[in-house]
C-alpha cells in the first residue's frame, strides 16, 4: 500500500497543493477507499494537515473512508424512489446489516451508500447491488435478495 501511494504522489510536485483532489481520487481508485494511513502519507508529502485533507475529502460524496465490502449496495433516494418509500427501505436495511451509509460491515460482506438517482425512476424504489439494478423494492424482497450475495 505504501508503494502504491508513493507512486501516485510521485507524479505531483509537493508545492502544487491544488493536486490534492486528483491524488485522493487516484488513491481511492487504487485502494477503494481513503485510509488514515494514506491521508498521513499525503499530508507529509503536500504538507497539508491531516484534518484539512479529511475536511476536504468529506466535502465530496465521491470519497469513502471505509474499505469497500465484497458487494456494494446503493440505495436510491432520488425524488421518485423517496416518494415510493426508499427512505423506509434504507432504514430497514440499516437495521438488517447494522451499518449506516458510508460504512462497511465487519465481515466485509456489504458496504452501503445512498445515491440521489440511478436514472430509472419508473422502477422506483430501486436498489443497486454490484452494478445490477433491482426494481420495485420492498423490505421483504430486499431481505431475500441479500441472501443471494455472500
Amino acid at each position: 500500500m505504501k508503494d502504491t501511494i508513493d507512486a501516485i504522489l510521485k507524479k505531483h510536485i509537493p508545492k502544487e497543493k491544488g493536486n490534492l483532489i486528483p491524488v485522493l481520487q487516484s488513491v481511492q481508485k487504487k485502494e477503494g477507499y481513503i485510509s488514515p494511513e494514506s491521508v498521513k502519507r499525503i499530508s507529509n508529502y503536500f504538507r497539508i494537515s491531516r484534518s484539512s485533507i479529511y475536511g476536504i475529502a468529506t466535502f465530496y460524496s465521491q470519497f469513502r473512508f471505509n474499505p469497500p465490502g465484497r458487494h456494494s449496495i446503493k440505495i436510491c433516494l432520488g425524488t421518485a424512489c423517496h416518494v415510493q418509500g426508499g427512505d423506509f427501505i434504507l432504514k430497514a436495511l440499516q437495521a438488517e446489516i447494522g451499518i449506516s451509509p458510508g460504512e462497511t460491515t465487519d465481515d466485509m460482506r456489504f458496504d452501503l451508500d445512498r445515491v440521489a438517482c440511478l436514472g430509472c425512476c419508473a422502477l422506483a424504489p430501486v436498489v443497486m447491488i454490484d452494478n445490477k439494478i433491482h426494481s420495485r423494492m420492498s423490505v421483504i424482497k430486499l431481505k431475500e435478495l441479500l441472501n443471494k450475495y455472500e
Binding site: R50, S51, S52, Y54, G55, T58, F59, Y60
Partner: peptide, 18 residues
C-alpha cells in the same frame, strides 16, 4: 492543525481527521 470543518451542508461540524 488539529481542527477543521468536516462534512458538508447541514452535517458540517468542527472535527479532527477520521
Amino acid at each position: 492543525e488539529v481542527l477543521n470543518f468536516v462534512q458538508r451542508g447541514n452535517l458540517v461540524i468542527v472535527g479532527t481527521a477520521f
